[in-house]
Nucleic acid binder design. Structure first.
Lengths: 191, 191
DNA sequence: GTCTATACAGCGATAGAC
DNA sequence: GTCTATCGCTGTATAGAC
């Protein structure tokens, strides 16, 4: 990633990290050329549409990875609890246990949101739906509510972990949503 | 806010909305002059340090508002459950039931994070600590864990509500954390 | 395919008249 | 205090040699 990428896929991965670090507006072309080792000529050869096409390619790559690794098992694995465990494990690895932010979430809060609204919405819709499906298939109630809360907690933990510079936030959140997702109780209702 | 502000405080409020919409990098001085109705001369009269000082002023204003309205009652109100109810109510109002993002969280994910790291960290530290204090004073266990999860869920719900363009996410999250915060049980542990 | 050179628009910031 | 004019710089993007 720090050495010149020979293929477009390598360039996409390198550019993703730059967007993560600086945001869409903050990621200047000079930063991108410096960090990828690619000249502007090569960059515009891979991405004729410029920065916007780079960001679109990054989002598509992220979406594809999550679809293959997380969403599809959640929907299709005959053992839904194993798929949920896998989601937790892969999510922890992907976000480096809270040390890496979610670019989709970052773009959602950014001014660039409108540009990529469809992709951003699609990503979270797919995640929530796939997780709700697994929870429901495991025989538990309130599947949609639990799934939505788990997805939102992951995003919030990434914000908080970065704000406090404390990855422990992410680990504690993962333990909690695992419990909430797999809890047999509908709820305890204090009133 | 759309008409020329006569005081610095009005300018801060107007600038805050522009940062919310475009992010720090995306909020250009020309956008700021256009939307505030203030010329560059006036802007630099109020904020000699330019954009960075504007953002610092906005963050200080947000921090002050939350300290007065939310954090202080959480710590000092003799009725901690009332303070928690107030937090939920004020938070719902402040974030317009999920239609408005948290600028502190947005800056945390942004490339501007390092510039304002102390303020961002201070804000969330204060919130988590004040809420944990109220939960503990109400006689419930696992105060820090519950408080951290509530703060993180608020941030995540704002990300998700904006991503899905569905404020309902925020309302559902508020109902859930109210339950979790006030639940008498330590937990139900399925294993 | 990759480079260097360059176009030109917009950036944040400043100066100075009023 | 507020305006307009302008600075120097960096932004994205393109052209054209190799």
């Amino acid at each position: 990633m720090s050495r010149p990428p020979r293929e477009r896929a390598d360039a996409v991965a390198a550019v993703a990290e730059i967007f993560r670090e600086f945001g869409f507006e903050g990621a200047s072309l000079s930063a991108i050329t410096a960090r990828t080792g690619l000249g502007k000529g090569s960059l515009y050869h891979f991405f004729p549409g410029g920065k916007e096409e780079m960001a679109a390619a990054v989002l598509a790559e992220i979406d594809g990875w999550f679809t293959r690794t997380v969403f599809a098992p959640l929907r299709d694995d005959p053992d839904p609890e194993a798929a949920i465990a896998r989601m937790l494990r892969e999510t922890d690895a992907y976000f480096r246990s809270g040390r890496r932010i979610c670019l989709v979430g970052a773009f959602a809060l950014d001014g660039t949101r409108d540009r990529f609204a469809a992709r951003i919405g699609g990503y979270f819709t797919a995640w929530r739906r796939a997780l709700a499906d697994a929870v429901a298939r495991s025989g538990r109630g309130e599947a949609m509510e639990r799934a939505e809360h788990a997805v939102l907690a992951i995003q919030g933990a990434l914000v908080l972990a970065r704000s406090l510079d404390d990855p422990g936030v992410f680990a504690r959140m993962l333990a909690r949503i695992e419990r909430d997702l797999l809890s047999p109780e509908t709820h305890d209702r204090p009133n």
